[in-house]
Design a protein around this nucleic acid. Sequence first.
DNA 1: CATATAATATTTTTATACAAAATAATTTCA
DNA 2: TGAAATTATTTTGTATAAAAATATTATATG
Lengths: 236, 236
Amino acid sequence: MDKEKSKLTENEIVSERKSFQNGAADQYSLRGRVFNQLREDILFGKYEKGEELREITIGSRLGVSRTPVREAIRQLELEGLVAIVPNKGAYVTGISEKDIHDIYHIRSYLEGLCARWACEHITKEKLEQLEEIIYLSEFHTEKGHWEQVVELDNKFHETIYEVCESKMLEHILRDFHHYVERVRRISLAQEARAKHSNTEHKAILEAIRTKDGVLAEKLAHEHIIQTIDNLNRCGL
Amino acid sequence: MDKEKSKLTENEIVSERKSFQNGAADQYSLRGRVFNQLREDILFGKYEKGEELREITIGSRLGVSRTPVREAIRQLELEGLVAIVPNKGAYVTGISEKDIHDIYHIRSYLEGLCARWACEHITKEKLEQLEEIIYLSEFHTEKGHWEQVVELDNKFHETIYEVCESKMLEHILRDFHHYVERVRRISLAQEARAKHSNTEHKAILEAIRTKDGVLAEKLAHEHIIQTIDNLNRCGL
DNA sequence: CATATAATATTTTTATACAAAATAATTTCA
DNA sequence: TGAAATTATTTTGTATAAAAATATTATATG
């Protein structure tokens, strides 16, 4: 494999990526915007299952040419949200109720593992961030600001994903967490569930603070199981 | 969201996808071929970490234009094998030793979950397939045909991924299994490990046959833990 | 000589053009 | 009328061209 001239060190790559939130989803290119838009629309059920995604249709709707649309669709295929039949078309597969159920069961293990690993890499700064998130979440739960509660739930989990310092685990948990955002919105809009969630987050944080990996894993695992139970109760 | 005319049912999508092995990686388009080629090259360390992937360079090397190369690189970004810095370039991140370590720990849980779910959907046909795979694997292990042993290990695990009937779990386990192929090759080329692996596969199969989900989960989990131990012993 | 600035060259990003494949419509013939 | 063949149309796949961004080199100035 012939070498090419310019290279980036691992740190440079990481920092560049960080500055754009999320490699795939940068807002600064048309492709990124189309990707985000389509992804949201699919996850929030704006397309029917099996619906065909035509490049020109989407392009003209978003005011861009076929090229960025094509690239976005190719990426969505890899995310499993779209199925491409060569020379035929791209069809929305989206996320089924069963997929969501499965994701929660998968997450129940992986959030546990993530919390355990987080104990090994937690810093004072991140502990304070997590504290603040929970503090704010309790405030907004009291006030019934569900939009903010969801946002803070995002932040709490994503902070732990960062802290576990595993590119692989972080990547997959971020995706899954995003996939179930629609359902989490519903779940956390119930006062009782939101309160329980805060309590569970606090317990997880304490376990991480004391670097009790085994306990953190158990609590994070149970946190997701509780969520599953709650979803079942809502008939979701 | 305005409806479009033609649609595919879920079954049609699935069957179409099946016929092309793996949606993303179809061999029948230039993009698919470029994607597979680059992925292999990255996973097998033919690119250095941080190396820049220039569209024209790769395109001319593979005899295609920049378009399919771009699409392939965009997909690899989503797989986490490449980092894209907008307006600058694409850089190989690849898979580190730590990533592989992490993947095995993640798999230890997910293979367990997969085996448990497989118990609920296993059929007579699939049981026979699995039996045959193990039988052949023992044969090739005796003969020292390591290439075939790896191939059969692939088949054993991927069959169970299918049987668990979870699009999500199957998707993620397939990816991970592929990511660690290089290391598995090394691991299974040790006669002792290959033999143990066969024994463990047999035990998992028996648990699935008797639909003992709890046992199947435990055995599949331990199977991966054993592999981790073995890798550690080899200093990998 | 060093540094800042302008000019040039590369490379990515997006748009468009053309070719290939698939689908739909029409015609032809029994 | 109805089925098969043919033609049109539509859509994807690939290549190339134009635009925007970035990196590099050269030049001028203190």
